[in-house]
Amino acid sequence: MTPRTDADELIEQPRIPLSRRRVLRAAVELADRDGLDALTMRRLAQEVGAEAMSLYHHVANKEAVLDGVVEVILGEITAAVDGVEAPSPEEDWQAALRARILAAREVFLRHRWAPQVLESRTNTSPAVIAYYDQVVAILRAGGFSFDLAHRALHVLGSRALGFTQELFQPGGAETADAEAAAMMEQMADQFPNIVGMLADAIHDDPDGTLGFCDDQFEFEFALDLILEGLERRRAAGS
């Protein structure tokens, strides 16, 4: 009897069947590792070890993949915010909402390409609506009228989900210190106030963020400013 070899064991290992969930998780991992531009049907097929045509049994096309990865990200956000420890909204609505938003932000910091995909979708995901419904629930429990809660959503915008669209994003990506310095030198004569502001604001950010000027301190500063302003309006009965 011929002895079994490691190769025989490897050959007999059952292949993990493809599923929509597996394809979408692979898409997220591919975008995390190589960037959103790398997310093509061909690359995704290679990622799951299948032929490109096999993917179409689970996702109709790349747009369906992008819709699906939004679902994955929003699922992570739901899990993150459900696990947040914070006061009840009746006790401290600001702390409750702040904790929820910062938990959602942590998800986007893990998937820095995700805001771009979320904003590109033509149809609003039910999961996004459900998330904002909970934001309104917190505001209502904190004493907001529907009218003020509506205005609060407009003020918060995407910040309620944990990300913002920054004004200054050279090349749509992070810019090295030397490149930023050269850019500002070229702009100094024409836009002295903007350059002066940016020169004062630039700082080391080794971990990277969601935007050129969007580090955690700046995000939280703006969030707190909004929440404090909304509380003043709520207390005044506006």
Rank of each mutant, 00 (worst) to 15 (best):
A99D: 01
T2V: 12
D177E: 12
A235V: 08
Q46N: 12
T122D: 09
L39Y: 03
S54E: 07
Q169M: 11
A103H: 01
V81I: 12
V84S: 00
G172F: 02
E220I: 03
V59F: 03
A199D: 08
M183Q: 09
H57W: 13
P170M: 07
R110C: 10
G35L: 09
V48C: 01
E174L: 14
A152D: 15
G49Q: 12
V70I: 10
L161W: 00
N193H: 15
E71D: 12
V136D: 00
Y132L: 12
A104C: 05
G196Y: 09
W93E: 02
A86Y: 11
F168Q: 02
R105F: 03
V81D: 02
L223G: 00
E12W: 08
A173F: 02
E179C: 10
H154Y: 11
I226G: 00
G208L: 04
L66I: 02
D207G: 15
P14T: 08
N123T: 12
D82P: 02
L225Y: 11
N123L: 15
Q46I: 03
D34S: 08
G142K: 05
L55H: 01
Q169I: 09
S145I: 08
G196W: 08
D92Y: 04
L18P: 04
A96M: 05
D8Y: 14
D215F: 01
D92F: 04
A160H: 06
L74A: 06
A160N: 08
L10R: 02
A7P: 05
H57I: 07
T209W: 11
R232H: 11
Q13W: 10
M183N: 09
A80I: 00
D204Q: 10
Y56R: 14
F144A: 12
E218R: 10
W113Y: 15
F221V: 04
E218V: 06
I101F: 06
C213P: 04
F219Y: 07
G229M: 11
